[in-house]
Design a protein around this nucleic acid. Sequence first.
DNA 1: CTGTTAGCGCATTCAT
DNA 2: ATGAATGCGCTAACAG
Lengths: 340, 340
Amino acid sequence: MARTTLQDVASEAGVSLATVDRVMNGRSGVHARTVERVQAAVKALDFHPDRHASRLARGRDYDFRIILPTGENDFMKMLEGELRETGARLRHERIKLSVQQVDVFDGPLLAAAIEELPATIDGLAVVALDHPAVVEAINNLVAAGVTVLTLVSDLPSSRRSHFVGIDNVAAGRTAANLIGRFVHGSGKVGLIAGSLALRDHIERQYGFEQVIAREYPNLQVLPLREGRDDNSRVESAARALLADHPDLVAIYSAGGGQSGVVAALEASGRAREVVFIAHELTPLARRHLVRGTIDAIINQDAGHMARSVARVLQSTREGAPIVPGQERIRIDVFLRDNLP
Amino acid sequence: MARTTLQDVASEAGVSLATVDRVMNGRSGVHARTVERVQAAVKALDFHPDRHASRLARGRDYDFRIILPTGENDFMKMLEGELRETGARLRHERIKLSVQQVDVFDGPLLAAAIEELPATIDGLAVVALDHPAVVEAINNLVAAGVTVLTLVSDLPSSRRSHFVGIDNVAAGRTAANLIGRFVHGSGKVGLIAGSLALRDHIERQYGFEQVIAREYPNLQVLPLREGRDDNSRVESAARALLADHPDLVAIYSAGGGQSGVVAALEASGRAREVVFIAHELTPLARRHLVRGTIDAIINQDAGHMARSVARVLQSTREGAPIVPGQERIRIDVFLRDNLP
DNA sequence: CTGTTAGCGCATTCAT
DNA sequence: ATGAATGCGCTAACAG
């Protein structure tokens, strides 16, 4: 039983190769009756096109773009590195990934950057700010036939076809869960977020407060402080928390700037007693997790996300189904002992 | 700059396509001087073969085999399901995965099953028992040119080219870490393992006891009970633990048969107080994690492992490098809130 | 609206 | 020891 080919389908349907190709790839200019015949043949023979052959014959490389935020955020830098690495590997598989930095916190600017993309590109993955102009720009691109993915921070109201990232409400709940179980006794809990312009940090805060309030009445969450993902600003916030609240038992840092919290904790001499949960497994987080200053890290795997972006873009382009389990980004929990 | 092809290399080296192919694929019958010239050209042009073209031209499908244990182990069943699913997807990409069940706890039997495999297969992934006959069988297969991977339970002393699985010592340490942090106060900890014939459970036990002894002097690990991954046997063990030790504060089940522990805990009425950590996110584990009987699950992602087996086998066969980050199986920690 | 044809880059006979 | 020629299954002009 040799594999069934386009040719087999053509014979079965009594048409030529080219016609089957037109039907398979949704090109116009085929009689409705013929389309049906071909589709019937495809089903009858359980035909699946050979990816290798089609990619080879296609000639043109896929042109995928990625838009990340400018700035000093450690996680974004890791993600950029992973995307470039994935891109380097995929160059040999007829896929071109280009990464571009834009100030995603500026809605109109981000929207303009998206509008400027040529409609000839095959796909875009973007860290999306929740702003009407951005939604509009994304929808236009989709209308022009480009596959658009949101990355890290979602924009469900847009027509993006897929989101590569984690459920941030669940991530916030997980942080609360860990703090609730790690803390013995009662006290206050500090909450530091980055910016509230992207949905991700808002969602984490929401999930966090929800679980603490509902399940850990012994803990009291203090008013949120904005750290803007900036080390020194975050450090001030953490210092203030520690100084103002002798009964502070835990800190949850939902954004970047972890090293600020670490510095404040170490300066205070309370690093051991205060439970500290942060996001993203950066080299710094790793060190302090081993040392004990950080008690647990909640992570989204940058390498996995980069590869997922490429795979989803490619599959969508090929009209192939994606494998849900493979593209689901986990909410990783890292303790000292299960570091990768 | 069009991509460089085999043809370009041939011109550069002043030889024909066929000769370059011989060199690239390590076939014999080429003058040493010619080999050098070709290799120089490859380096000079930074040539990377086009996977799509080579797979298309190759014609023959890859024939990969997988050997799993017979028996009722839930995790193995999940793994089998994932392997079959991966196999179904890959049939359309010129890869054939066949899964086979063998009583891997019987060394000679397992070895015989491996010896019986035709040397024409391209690769094997096997859950390896630590037995000399198995090592021998694996080494023979490798010598015959077959790519061999160990799966779930490793056999580092063999010549297998790769292990798909987690670091089980670290997994045991992680369990200890969680119990140490979740338990308030002091008391006894029960430890139930499956069989000690495979390395994985031994390693988990080792890591677990190490961390409890070193970092949590308030806890005392009771002598290990063997549950043989069997629900009813595990249930007896758990019942005995609960009955004999009123000061039991936690149970770590390093093997299968979780539902036995759940049953014993629920019957005892101490499900809430006793911290229970188990392995593998089965549907049952999921339910009881949400309900609170299980406090945390340590997991190795069966879907990830199945895909990794296929990718590593394929890459090895193609002489392509594997992506370490993509093939590293994580030690997942699942709490109620970060369930996938 | 439909068919014919020429490659895509490589593996693999079959010659030399 | 090396080269020439054929075809893998599909896409994309180009004809009709």
